[in-house]
Amino acid sequence: MIDELILQVVSDESASHEELVEQARHLKEHLNQLPGVEASELTTPAAAGTRDTVSYVFGVLALAVFTVPTVKRAAADIRHLAEVIKRYQERNKGKRLRMTLPDGTEIDVRDVSEKTLAELIKSVSAPRQGTASVAEKVDGD
């Protein structure tokens, strides 16, 4: 698994926390239908002295993209993932998505094309050195 991408639902107008949570959950459902993608609500450690061990961040999803298939996970179709994100953006006028890359760079999704978004996701999803990969079968093996 790569470092997670963060997707945040942001409103261009005033929106309640409940509305942002609902929008994020709707997007999460769509993303989790894609092979090789795992979206979950972002959590943070709860404040000291509270009973909960984690707190949910309103309207924010952690997105893991698997480019190397494992026994339980398929490789992600990154082009389709970018398409789902852009279509969500188009359907939800007045809301926009902000993506935070593992290095902390923030990108407003509506400012990039679907092709650029796919290339960006692919660039941060590529297996790095030290990451387990699927061995290629070579003739004679």
Rank of each mutant, 00 (worst) to 15 (best):
L20R: 02
S133I: 15
D103V: 08
Q8Y: 00
Q23F: 02
P35E: 05
A135L: 15
A82I: 01
L7E: 00
G140T: 08
A24Y: 00
D3F: 07
A46C: 12
L61A: 03
I78C: 09
G140M: 03
L34F: 03
I78F: 10
A47Q: 13
H17T: 01
S123M: 02
L20K: 05
G36V: 02
P45G: 08
R25L: 08
I6G: 06
A47P: 02
R96P: 11
D3W: 13
T131S: 15
I107Q: 01
V37D: 06
S55L: 05
V84K: 06
I121A: 01
E18G: 00
K115P: 10
Q33V: 03
T44I: 12
S133Y: 14
Q23W: 03
K122Q: 11
V54L: 06
V54W: 09
K86H: 08
V37R: 08
L120M: 12
T105Q: 14
P102F: 05
T70D: 07
L20I: 03
L7C: 00
K95I: 11
L117N: 07
T100H: 05
G94E: 15
I121C: 01
R96V: 04
P35A: 06
A135H: 11
G104N: 07
Q129N: 12
K95S: 04
K93L: 15
P127D: 01
T131Q: 15
A118Y: 07
V138W: 02
R87D: 15
R79V: 08
L81Y: 08
T100D: 05
P127E: 01
Q89I: 07
A62E: 04
A126R: 12
M99E: 00
E4G: 12
D111I: 07
L117P: 09
A132L: 10
L117D: 03
P35G: 14
G49A: 01
T70Q: 08
G140S: 03
V84I: 12
A135I: 15
I107Y: 00
R110S: 12
E4A: 15
E106L: 02
E29H: 14
H17F: 01
N32P: 05
T67A: 12
S113F: 01
V112T: 07
G104M: 01
V60T: 08
Q33C: 11
T43Q: 13
R128I: 09
S40D: 10
Q129P: 10
S16Y: 00
T53I: 10
G104K: 02
A135M: 14
V21N: 02
E18S: 00
T67Y: 13
V112I: 09
